[in-house]
């Protein structure tokens, strides 16, 4: 069989076809398959990211549940601390409360005045106020005073006596004049 000789026209067609074929392959990979693959890879990456985010979020939710269980006691106590602060301005309710308290221990005529009010330096107590009060008890017996202070210290957790001054009344030696400097921790409202 004799090989067919290509004429000039056929050779031109072959060359043109080859160029067209190469162009087609280029277009196919660059403008069709390339973007498709890139989009798929990008979506695969996004899936991994979203799944990691979801997984870590679920872990975080579990941790929060655990924290909730661990913090149950602290939460309960914190709520109790919050309840020690009555509604309204402290100057409105704290002095009457102290007067009533000391009256119930037969210590009458107590006067209570606010000395200073300020924030705590600790950032954890940013929601709490530190108020200093002066409680004057013009006449009290020593043992009665001791019992009253004991009860005050045991029932008012967020109250602390910072200064105590007891002076005997010259004419009535069985009575003392008392001044208490009291610090309270009250919730800001």
């Amino acid at each position: 069989m004799m090989p067919t000789k290509l004429n000039k026209d056929q050779i031109q067609k072959i060359i043109l076809s080859t160029i067209g074929f190469i162009g087609l392959i280029y277009c196919y990979f660059n403008f069709f398959l390339g973007p498709l693959n890139r989009s798929r890879e990008s979506m695969a990456r996004t899936i991994v990211e979203v799944q990691e985010k979801t997984s870590s979020s679920k872990n975080e939710m579990k941790k929060t549940d655990n924290l909730e269980a661990q913090a149950k006691e602290a939460t309960g106590r914190y709520e109790a601390f919050k309840r020690t602060t009555a509604e309204g301005a402290p100057i409105a309710w704290f002095p009457p409360k102290m007067k009533t308290f000391f009256s119930s221990h037969d210590i009458d005529k107590a006067t209570v005045r606010l000395e200073s009010s300020g924030d705590f330096p600790q950032p954890e107590l940013s929601n709490w106020l530190r108020d200093s009060w002066v409680v004057d008890l013009p006449q009290s017996e020593y043992d009665v005073l001791g019992k009253a202070i004991a009860q005050l210290e045991n029932t008012e957790a967020l109250l602390s006596v910072q200064k105590l001054s007891i002076r005997a009344i010259p004419d009535q030696p069985q009575y003392q004049q008392v001044a208490l400097s009291v610090q309270t921790v009250l919730l800001k409202k």
Partner: peptide, 26 residues
């Protein structure tokens, strides 16, 4: 909620510290 709980735990710890550090005069 976790942030709130951590804040509550920290505040309670500091408040407990204040209570434990009190001087009892009676």
């Amino acid at each position: 909620r976790a942030t709130e709980l951590r804040q509550i735990i920290d505040s309670t710890k500091v408040l407990d510290g204040l209570i434990e550090g009190r001087f009892y005069w009676a």
